[in-house]
Design a protein around this nucleic acid. Sequence first.
RNA 1: GCGGGUGUAGUUCAAUGGCAGAACACCAGCUUCCCAAGCUGGUCACGGGAGUUCGAUUCUCCUCACCCGCUCCA
Length: 494
Amino acid sequence: MAKAEKNELMEKLFSLCKRRGFIFQSSEIYGGITSCWDYGPLGVELKRHVKDLWWQENITGREDVVGMDASILMHPKVWEASGHVENFHDPLIDCKKCRARFREDKALHYFKCEKCDFHFRVNGGLIEVKDEFRTFFKDDLYANEPESYKKSDCPKCGTAGSIFLEKIACPTCGAAELSPARQFNLMFKTHFGPSEDTASEVYLRPETAQGIFVNFDNVVNTTRLKLPFGIGQIGKAFRNEITTGNFIFRSREFEQMELEYFVKPDESQKWHEYWVEQRFQWYQKLGVKRENLRLRAHAKEELAHYARACTDVEYKFPFGWSELEGIADRQTFDLDSHIKASGKKMSYFETETNTHIVPAVVESSAGVDRSILTVLSDAYWEDTEHDRIVLKLDPKLAPIKVAILPLVNKDGMPEIAMAIFSDVKKQMAAFYDQTGSIGRRYRRQDEAGTPFGVTVDSQTLEDGTVTLRDRDSLEQIRIPKDNVANILREKLHE
RNA sequence: GCGGGUGUAGUUCAAUGGCAGAACACCAGCUUCCCAAGCUGGUCACGGGAGUUCGAUUCUCCUCACCCGCUCCA
């Protein structure tokens, strides 16, 4: 697909979302605010269904997982222990020559020994040495940070602490004319209580996961869960991203669905594979087409230092393949950090061996808003044969399940349709519409993703049946008007 | 945050230094027996703020938002 077409599809989705009341820009009457979005009447229903399906699949539908709902504001020490205060920022550098902007550790770092002729370059974590020095670096071609080479011992002449950073240069144009690195902490700060001094600073959580880790002991002590077990949570998180965009794909306020699954440390790899598969299947249960989904395992140098493995679920968005969810084997890093920082035990007592162990954790971290964008993109269909736009949402996700329509506005049809509507709406989201021609009303519902239409016509007056229209196939069948709710309920559970 | 682009009705687009138009959508009525039909009537817009000017939607500046790229991630 050409780039212009991709952009066009995003624009069409954006327009449809606004036109039909799925998603609006936040604070629109004041000119809007960057990357904040409001879910309208149809959008909030869609979002609720996505979250409910996640909760059902991962919490209530399982014996080994419980849910919780932690507060957004937490003790500042949580974020010190988790590493977010120290690490959750991007030092960025601008190239004065070619105007490229990049992360400090992506710059070309030139190192040199101050005693001998040994020198090398670090390029994006990869050490590049001249052939004559190749022998001095054998298995160590990947490094964590260029910083780690400073003041290290020279591998050639052996002088202690003789390696120094000669210069850093732009990875794009190679020029060494760079601006100083600037720090951007990605956590939102606010003040706890009325006084705005430094002591009262707290953060809005940048992820929901920490609310689970700090409650590990509370949950273990109150639920009698046995390893392996999980704790899940859905909630808002906030990140002061440098760059936002692609509609609701990346915003500064967003909602996460996170599951922390605690396992015996030597079993984490097995459970990581298990959850990757589970989560990959889940998106397909939302009706997302298999060919638009893929898994991507992180390469070794991409991994955070504490993670043993991480696999992303990616979706083929109109703007390209992008991450929907990450499933990571975080080992015991999170619990260890909080045990160390808080001085509390937070272990699990294994009765078989009579020992306390700190479990490893496999984390599934999914974005609610990204899931919404995924199901909307995936469902968007221009039916050129019938000249209509259809959201082919899975009926489970559809904001409105059925539209109840009198074929024409006379002969008592509106009254019969209204009576059916009154009955059906007690059991599912239904919509009554008697305005305009029947075709126009069907098309309105097609754009809203409503899977079924029930129409009262003259035959209804004779034999008490109504037509049931299928959104995708346009097929119509006749069903008894007094049994509409039951038949629809069966169809929705198919 | 930096560079580029775009802002006119609910949507998609016109025009204009001097009363801002269309199509579709929406609302009311008529009509209509199955897929955006027709007729009549109606509601609704120059992103915001300064400046130039007798007069600015139009020109200038600032600002805000969206899109693309850098970057990052749920």
